[in-house]
């Protein structure tokens, strides 16, 4: 049970976006995908999320090809948080979060309970009645997170659940950045496989189990945090000098640009 990519390549016209990517998202683990702009992070993300169908290579979800599942089956197993959402209509926050229950048929009462619990988790309960378009960028991001949590809240009969996050912290303040990734850890502890694109290396170091480094559409390195996040590899990939020391409080690397 996992999401597996084996030698997955994707071209857009003549342009190679990613080539021969192999990775695994395992239930119970948090995988951080790192890399400079244009490294192919979003392309990998979108292939896994099922948005591009013309990739080459193997992509399996719980040991079956991803495309063998119906859209609804996939939705029950996989929650996808986009970078930003363009919703411009005046839904209330509670209504937006409830949209996460669309793939399920658990009944109105249960749906509302789950939506409310998901709002609590994402710290947006106080916004429940607010209209979505009136929120700030960070609040919108948290509401979308609540919607996606609401979608994969319960164990699915289809198989293990997965959560894909595309820069979930890009619009968040410091405390909510940590709150969101702590939530990802909490879900992993419940058996959800989490993959997150991140730009903040220290957030990745602190919260991820495994790291995937992408550069120019290829896997530069992947493995446990301590093994992959070394000064040499990061300096090489991002083209900026960094020092890596030990975090003063946790046993994880701390990356400082020098």
């Amino acid at each position: 049970m996992s999401i597996r990519l084996e030698n997955v390549s994707l071209n857009m016209g003549p342009k190679k976006l990613i080539s021969k990517i192999s990775l695994a998202i395992n239930p119970g683990e948090v995988l951080a995908v790192l890399g400079p702009n244009g490294a192919g992070k979003s392309s990998v993300f979108k292939v896994i999320a099922g948005e591009y169908k013309h990739y080459k290579g193997q992509l399996t979800l719980n040991a079956k090809p991803l495309m063998d599942f119906s859209a609804n089956q996939r939705a029950k197993m996989m929650g996808v948080l986009p970078q930003s959402s363009q919703l411009a209509f005046a839904f209330s926050v509670f209504e937006v979060v409830l949209l996460g229950r669309l793939p399920h048929s658990t009944g109105r009462k249960k749906d509302r309970e789950i939506a409310f619990a998901a709002m609590k988790k994402a710290d947006v309960v106080h916004l429940a009645q607010a209209l979505y378009p009136s929120l700030s960028g960070g609040e919108k991001q948290r509401v979308q997170l609540a919607r996606v949590l609401c979608q994969i809240w319960q164990e699915s009969v289809e198989g293990s659940r997965y959560l894909l996050l595309d820069e979930p912290t890009s619009a968040l303040d410091l405390s909510h950045q940590h709150h969101t990734l702590a939530l990802a850890r909490e879900l992993a502890a419940q058996g959800v496989g989490v993959m997150s694109i991140l730009h903040d290396l220290n957030l990745a170091a602190q919260y991820a189990d495994n790291v995937l480094l992408l550069g120019q559409g290829k896997v530069i390195d992947q493995g446990p945090v301590e093994q992959v996040m070394t000064a040499a590899k990061i300096t090489d990939l991002y083209g900026i000098d960094v020092s890596v020391t030990e975090h003063p409080k946790y046993a994880c690397p701390l990356i400082i640009a020098s």
Partner: peptide, 20 residues
């Protein structure tokens, strides 16, 4: 109606919510 509600979030989002 429900499909249209999901589509308001965006086409990718609707797809991720299991809509064809």
């Amino acid at each position: 109606a429900k499909n249209l509600n999901a589509l308001l979030l965006g086409e990718s989002e609707a797809r991720h919510l299991g809509i064809d």
